[in-house]
Write a protein that binds this DNA or RNA. Structure first.
Lengths: 228, 228
DNA sequence: CGCGGATATGTCTATGTCGAAACAACGGAT
DNA sequence: ATCCGTTGTTTCGACATAGACATATCCGCG
């Protein structure tokens, strides 16, 4: 079973959702200079593209400056609002893409204390503070590799001096190098290693390689879980 | 323009996507004990629900143990695979939900160096290392509040001893308390404050309040951006 | 052996989405 | 004044999705 998490990101306002399709449309308008050629270049019908623009503008404000008549017959350009909307959409899409593509470590445990959304989960490696919206009993915590910070055991702030509430001492058991980003697996005494995504620079300056001792820390607010 | 980022999460396998709708169906089957009453309780047609289950099983493996005949006429129960699938879906949904609901700080700057996905962005506050898949020139970096770690200036690891590549010294300019989670705004010399989400415990132990000096640090791999 | 409740399957229809096409409006260029 | 290319607007039909409905099948139990 090859399961891959995926997503459709969108920005909603006033009941209308701006999605990837709309982003492509705006970019095409920006590039082609006209709604007509934009629709054609995307292989979509002009009628629908035009209706969609009107619909989006009702929700998000003026997006396309349309000019009909004139030399060349007219044309369309994006408004500043449209550019901001595009940027906002791309930012959230990039954030979501991070979640989808980045490896996660799944930790299982049991909720032993709850205070609003904030819970304390007892795991094999010790207590972990995390955010679990609801439920109790057994939980699965999802720890994203890009949320895990590695520090030198000799120079790690004492718990009272950092907002990273979860910390474990561990040993590097694997280093998987990419171009400039490496994935470090750290054994912290639970069944599976905790994955951390760090830059190659960090790996070198921390001298991380199999066998290295390292402190793994991550924030409670970056650790999300669900009751199972 | 009240924009709100949102998303539809799904897990795809073999061309079939398991989405929120399917999760609700499986949970209903689990709760009702039969595909029939599950469909009814959801106000959906039995015929389609049944066909959907078959379709999902072709992609993800056996999900529903169906029993027809017998006392009560039969019924259905979820397989272990189905429970794992549900848990995986809920985990990714929880992660995505985090991105959607958590405040972000948007930093603008200019790419001055690129090494694969890893870039160095020159901002008002100084250089920031981040992940930007492509493009150059001006970028918007999205820094999620839950990815920002705050530490005591007196006890912060030197840059050579941590994988958090970005750090800035700043002053707390605002504390917005929730139940157990507080949002801290830190001025680091750029136009807008950097937002950090920390637990109330952390706020107290670090003694954070308006005027406090604090070190803001975040990982390059947790900082994603897009060219604009 | 039939009952009853559930699963399995086929077909029709309502709905929404999208493309194709046609036509009017517009305004600078010729 | 006319032409031209684009925008604005409307209508129609193809297509996919999902509910409504009908029917066949299954099988433990009394």
């Amino acid at each position: 079973m090859d399961v891959r998490p995926a997503f459709d990101a969108y920005i909603s306002s006033d009941g209308v959702t701006f999605e990837a399709r709309d982003g492509a449309l705006l970019r095409a308008i920006d590039g082609e200079g006209s709604l007509n050629t934009a629709a054609e270049s995307l292989g979509r019908s002009y009628a629908h593209a035009q209706r969609r623009v009107v619909e989006l503008e009702e929700a998000f404000g003026p997006l396309v400056e349309r000019q009909r008549g004139g030399s060349g017959g007219g044309g369309s350009t994006l408004t500043e609002t449209a550019r901001e909307l595009l940027a906002a959409f791309e930012r959230t899409r990039a954030s979501f893409a991070g979640v989808a593509e980045i490896a996660e470590t799944v930790l299982t445990g049991r909720i032993v204390e709850r205070d609003g959304e904030l819970v304390t989960v007892e795991t094999e490696a010790g207590p972990i503070r995390a955010l679990v919206p609801e439920g109790d009993g057994r939980v699965q915590l999802s720890l994203r590799a890009d949320a895990v910070t590695l520090t030198d055991p000799e120079d790690t702030p004492v718990p009272e001096h950092t907002s990273a509430r979860n910390r474990f001492v561990g040993t590097v058991v694997g280093v998987e190098a990419g171009e400039r980003i490496v994935r470090v697996a750290v054994d912290v005494g639970i069944g599976q290693p905790v994955l951390a995504l760090v830059t190659e620079d960090s790996r070198q300056t921390l001298g991380l390689e199999a066998g290295s001792d390292v402190v793994v820390s991550f924030k409670a607010t970056a650790t999300r879980g669900v009751a199972v």
